[in-house]
């Protein structure tokens, strides 16, 4: 009965699609006769590649030109060619470690903030995700439920994540109430520089932990059980099993997770922007927000400078992506060997 219903529902869903196919078939068959199989390949590729070309490839290309121009005008034709001046402005600095000595001090503040964020966040994130995956890989009851617990925040929108935590971390928020209950002094989480940075780190980990834990869990579950059984027959101790079996076999997944986390951490924006707005001062101003502010939001709009900054950031991401593709290929060949 149930399968019958399912079939009927399926048929109901398919019926309009089948009709659409019948209506579309004659003209497309005619097209195939005229254009041949090659023409049909073009037909299938064109919609996606046209949109892709206009909205991804073209911007990618003109970004380079854009970064060589100056002025407030939006359209490329109306902008002044300045060559490498924007890059020179970004890179003009007496001491790169002290943004205040740089011409474009906000840029270097953002660079160092982002670098600090990437190091701290990725380290903590990977460690937490690994621990979570190891725990979820144990013989738990209701494993699906526990996996869901950690995965739940992954789907939330960054704005929602930012607002939830702003509400919790605010001065009169529940966290400070809990601190008072425990006899601790309340903290101005989002107003004090150090704590605001920690908050952006913590909240982004909270939001993405489940995603990486899931990839690692898949890697752990792909390790054949008989390896552990064989090791147990050999009298291997649990700790040794972890270091000699689990970790080496998990390595491909772990590397992918690290690179993915790096790529995402470099681009950090949404959650942090909603949570702190880059503040206090510029304590949590990260690269993407810098590009956004300089390109669109600030009073001293300078799209050329933003383009130049985005190309520098893109360069970092390309390197990381190449690393990831290399790792992916290695993982693939390993997967085949298995």
């Amino acid at each position: 009965m149930a399968t019958r219903l399912k079939h009927m529902a399926g048929a109901a869903a398919v019926a309009p699609l089948a009709l659409l196919a019948r209506v579309l078939d004659p003209p497309l068959r005619a097209l195939q006769r005229v254009a041949g199989q090659g023409g049909m390949i073009t037909f299938f590729l064109v919609p996606n590649m046209a949109i892709f070309g206009i909205f991804v490839l073209l911007p990618l290309c003109i970004n380079f030109v854009y970064s060589m121009t100056a002025g407030p005008e939006l359209f490329l034709a109306q902008r002044d060619w300045v060559g490498g001046a924007q890059y020179a402005k970004l890179l003009d600095c007496e001491d790169y470690t002290r943004p205040a000595t740089c011409d474009e001090d906000l840029f270097w503040t953002a660079v160092w903030n982002t670098a600090r964020f990437v190091v701290v966040q990725v380290t903590l994130l990977v460690v937490c995700a690994t621990v979570t995956a190891l725990i979820l890989n144990r013989e738990l009851r209701a494993r699906g439920f526990w996996r869901a617990v950690f995965f739940f925040p992954v789907l939330l929108s960054p704005v929602v994540v930012g607002l939830i935590w702003r509400w919790i971390l605010q001065r009169d928020g529940i966290l400070n109430a809990a601190m008072l209950d425990l006899g601790l002094d309340p903290v101005n989480w989002l107003i004090e520089r150090g704590w605001a940075f920690a908050a952006t780190v913590g909240v982004t980990i909270w939001a993405h932990l489940g995603f990486y834990a899931l990839i690692l869990l898949a890697g752990l579950q792909a390790i054949p059980r008989d390896l552990y059984e064989a090791a147990e027959m050999d009298g291997t101790r649990p700790a040794r099993m972890f270091w000699r079996i689990t970790l080496p076999l998990l390595m491909p997944n772990l590397l992918v997770v690290i690179v993915l986390a790096l790529i995402r951490a470099v681009q950090v924006f949404d959650e942090a922007y909603v949570l702190t707005g880059g503040g206090p001062g510029t304590a949590t101003l990260y690269m993407t927000q810098y590009i956004y502010e300089v390109g669109f939001a600030s009073l001293l709009k300078n799209p050329g400078l933003a383009a130049a900054a985005s190309i520098l950031m893109g360069g970092v991401l390309v390197v990381l992506t190449l690393v990831q593709l290399g790792l992916g290929r290695r993982g693939e060949s390993k997967g085949k060997a298995r």
Partner: peptide, 17 residues
């Protein structure tokens, strides 16, 4: 190659388009 190019990298020119 563009799998990992985020929006933030092409924000400005995309906006002009």
């Amino acid at each position: 190659a563009t799998l990992m190019i985020p929006l933030s990298v092409i924000l400005v020119p995309l906006f002009s388009i």
